[in-house]
């Protein structure tokens, strides 16, 4: 891997990490899904996975108090994006298709976190599932809107920078 590639991946990790911390006060409103979808489309599978692993590692270091049990589910949740977009949903290209993917992913990501949350907090499964619905909806719609409006301009701009 060239130094330029390493610098690019490091910048991508920094952007996803910083935006998440900056938006932490807003429940589940973030650009993380948009950015990971973008990275998945711009980078190879291996590089996208590397960005996600480093991002989850940094996030876990910061929120270690929340419990290490969350690390596998966080990884599983975010890695699902490159896995799906490089396999079964490989043909999704337009911002609308990817926005619908992001919408569904918002709920799937929420469900993936439930086992760890139930294990850690000892909250019964059904109450947790019900209480989480509005937060999943916020994430799903936040994903939908950010991908719908920002995916194409960001993709074009980064492609331009990469080619120059």
């Amino acid at each position: 891997m060239k130094i330029k590639d390493i610098a690019l991946l490091a910048s991508f990790v920094a952007i996803v990490f910083v935006q998440e911390q900056a938006l932490m006060l807003l429940p589940n409103i973030q650009f993380t899904t948009l950015l990971i979808v973008l990275y998945t489309k711009l980078l190879s599978f291996k590089k996208a996975v590397a960005v996600i692993i480093v991002y989850v590692f940094l996030d876990s270091l910061l929120w270690l108090g929340m419990g290490i049990v969350y690390v596998p589910t966080l990884l599983l949740g975010w890695l699902l994006i490159p896995v799906l977009l490089h396999t079964v949903f490989k043909r999704l290209e337009t911002s609308l298709e990817l926005a619908i993917f992001g919408l569904v992913f918002g709920f799937v990501y929420g469900w993936i976190q439930i086992p760890a949350a139930v294990l850690i907090t000892n909250v019964p499964f059904i109450p947790y599932l019900v209480a989480d619905i509005p937060f999943e909806a916020i994430m799903a719609i936040s994903n939908f809107l950010t991908i719908l409006w920002l995916y194409e301009p960001l993709h074009k701009r980064i492609k331009m920078i990469q080619s120059s």
């Binding site: 909806a137 916020i138 719609i141 939908f144």
Partner: peptide, 12 residues
């Protein structure tokens, strides 16, 4: 895009 945005925000 605008129509879809208004629709999903209303649902939210």
């Amino acid at each position: 895009k605008i129509t879809l945005t208004v629709f999903v925000v209303a649902i939210l």
